[in-house]
């Protein structure tokens, strides 16, 4: 078995709220192998994005450790490239300058970085849009610009937090294809945070199912579907079985989440 490139060990995060401390994540441990596609799935409020922030080094106050290639990390790390859920392109830069941003930080000459940026723009299928500004692009295209910008920094691990959450289902499936294609082309180790079961099954080698608050590891499901994959796989019988399996794990947690939310609203509505 390949050595893990990323190891998260006993992660725990507690937030202080007006109603007292809330344990968002508790005892979350997992590892990701080189070139593997791992998805973390869970109901709303289970702490998925908190795990994303801890691994990306954006949340300093946590228990447990994160190691990349054996190195303990305690902040943003050059080996980890992040793609965010919210639209995160720079509106004042055109596509090529957005994608070249991490290369600019390394001091690379303009000609060279533009050429490099064009390579990643082609990879995400946006050639011809290099001079456009984000305001002239659709939501899906903007997310592809963000993805290309992160890939341009050539991270060892691609960390994505529900990057297609704001897109419609068809665009989401097609962009899933694009991500799969890139992941397979670059043998890119990828960690995807999502609440979408079909997206997780379509792309992943393994799926980590989290419990509702506090977020713990409920189960890790191996997805043994052939690669290379495309969105065509969603019609297969095996795909359906995996979706059902993940949903059976997730259903109980999602119901707990829903109930908890209803109780909270009732409590708030009381005089």
């Amino acid at each position: 078995m390949t050595t893990p490139i990323l190891v998260a060990d006993q992660l725990a995060v507690r937030f202080e709220t007006a109603e007292g401390p809330v344990k968002a994540v508790d005892d979350v441990s997992f590892s990701v192998r080189q070139g593997e596609f791992l998805s973390i799935i869970g109901p709303s409020g289970c702490g998925k994005s908190t795990v994303f922030n801890v691994i990306g080094g954006l949340l300093a106050q946590h228990d447990g450790t994160v190691r990349v290639g054996g190195e303990l990390i305690d902040g943003p790390h050059k080996s980890i490239g992040m793609v965010f859920q919210e639209e995160s392109t720079f509106p004042w830069r055109n596509v090529v300058d957005n994608v070249a941003f991490p290369l600019e930080l390394t001091g690379m000459a303009r000609d060279k970085r533009v050429e490099r940026a064009r390579h990643f723009i082609r990879m995400v299928g946006l050639d011809g849009f290099e001079k456009r500004y984000p305001g002239e692009l659709s939501g899906g295209m903007r997310q592809r610009v963000s993805l290309a910008r992160t890939l341009a920094s050539e991270p060892k691990i691609l960390l994505m937090d529900e990057p297609f959450a704001a897109l419609d289902e068809q665009t989401r499936l097609l962009l899933g294809d694009k991500v799969l294609q890139i992941q397979q082309q670059l043998q890119q180790t990828t960690l995807l945070i999502t609440h979408n079961i079909t997206e997780a099954v379509q792309m992943s080698d393994r799926i980590l199912v989290m419990t509702y608050r506090p977020g713990r590891v409920k189960r890790i499901v191996e997805i043994d579907l052939p690669r290379p994959r495309t969105s065509d796989i969603v019609g297969s019988e095996a795909f359906g079985r995996y979706v059902a399996q993940v949903w059976s794990d997730l259903r109980e947690e999602a119901s707990r989440g829903l109930k908890d939310e209803e109780e909270h609203m009732l409590h708030e509505a009381q005089p």
């Binding site: 965010f84 995160s88 920094s153």
Partner: peptide, 20 residues
């Protein structure tokens, strides 16, 4: 999220100000 993009690229405080 733009500030977080800067943080994810390990920008210094000065880079964060001038570039984002």
């Amino acid at each position: 999220v733009l500030v977080n993009v800067g943080r994810s690229f390990n920008l210094s405080a000065s880079q964060q100000f001038w570039k984002i």
